[in-house]
Simulated scan of single mutants.
Amino acid sequence: MKRTGKGLIGGAVLAAMSGIGLSLYSSRVARKAEELVPAEGRFLDVAGARLHYLDVGSGPTIVMVHGLGGQLRNFSYALVDQLKDEYRVIVVDRPGSGYSVATGATTPGIIAQGAIIADFIQKLGLDRPLFVGHSLGGAIGLAVGLDHPHLVRALALIAPLTQPLEQVPESFRGLARIPSGARLAFAQVLGTPLSRLTAKKTLEGVFAPEAVPEDFVTRGGGALSARPIAIAAAAADLAGANDDVKAMVGRYAEIGVPTRILFGRQDAILDPAWNGHRTAAVVPGAKIDTIEGGHMIPITAPEACARFVRAAFAAA
């Protein structure tokens, strides 16, 4: 009995020390990521969040919102440079991503993030910008189009999430396993170390069939996604996505702002037929284009995405 008790105590001490060690490792990873990819924009307090954003160029305004596990450098990597000589381009970190934080009592879902971006547009005094959303950011664009249509000129959705996920993409299944009651604690102890081990495979899946750019970790901001706070936020985004998307799908016929959709035909994350053509068929007047490429076309095909954005603005 005594030996058993000592063994249990020893095991508990070892587990606690291992947890502390992993937590310290995660904190070091987060600090290093922020050194590699520092905040480069401004901050604005809005209802429910403190948002970090980059504002460049001049002319008619475009607001860009990134997808799951990303941040504004997914756009500033290449697409912003394609547009900033013609437009005022504002790229923003979603709450919990990059350097933006949610300030409410709960983690905001897609519809709530739509309201946050709507307040962001109003606080900046923007005159009906074109809304560009990639992946999960596309779902947020649809939420803005449904609930705040007077604030945007049109929607230009790149590889958007528009329909309920029938299954979680393989690259994001690790996020789906994070327990809802302790996301940040789990991410601090296990999420960041595990993400470091699986980062190469995860990025290859997200970019497939195209290669991951060698400088994506820094220039594309990928390093920030390994921080515990980013992992916890992405897990929350994923967990709540279907509920909000299901609530929006039945309302797509109400969307009154011009809507265009662009997909890479080889997208391995979101099916173009399910999330693109199916949605374009029910949104009034919506048009869909497809190009060669995968899910990360804002990075891998910036020229084609820029043409798509220009066309969306012209049509509006």
Rank of each mutant, 00 (worst) to 15 (best):
E40D: 15
E40W: 05
R42H: 14
L44I: 15
V46L: 03
G48K: 04
A49K: 08
A49M: 11
R50A: 05
R50T: 15
R50G: 07
L51T: 02
L51K: 02
Y53T: 08
Y53I: 10
Y53D: 09
D55Y: 12
D55P: 09
D55I: 08
G57Y: 11
G57P: 12
P60A: 15
I62L: 15
V63T: 06
M64T: 01
H66K: 06
G67M: 11
L68C: 09
L68A: 12
G69F: 12
Q71E: 15
L72E: 05
S76P: 09
S76F: 06
L79T: 15
V80N: 01
Q82E: 15
Q82F: 01
L83D: 05
K84M: 14
R88H: 11
R88G: 07
V89R: 03
V89W: 06
V89E: 04
V89H: 03
V92G: 06
V92P: 06
D93T: 08
P95Y: 08
G96R: 02
G98M: 10
Y99K: 08
Y99A: 08
G104V: 09
A105S: 14
A105V: 12
A105P: 00
T106S: 15
T106Y: 11
T106D: 12
P108A: 03
P108V: 02
G109I: 00
I110D: 01
A112P: 01
G114C: 02
G114F: 00
I117G: 00
I117M: 11
D119Y: 04
F120P: 00
I121P: 03
I121Q: 01
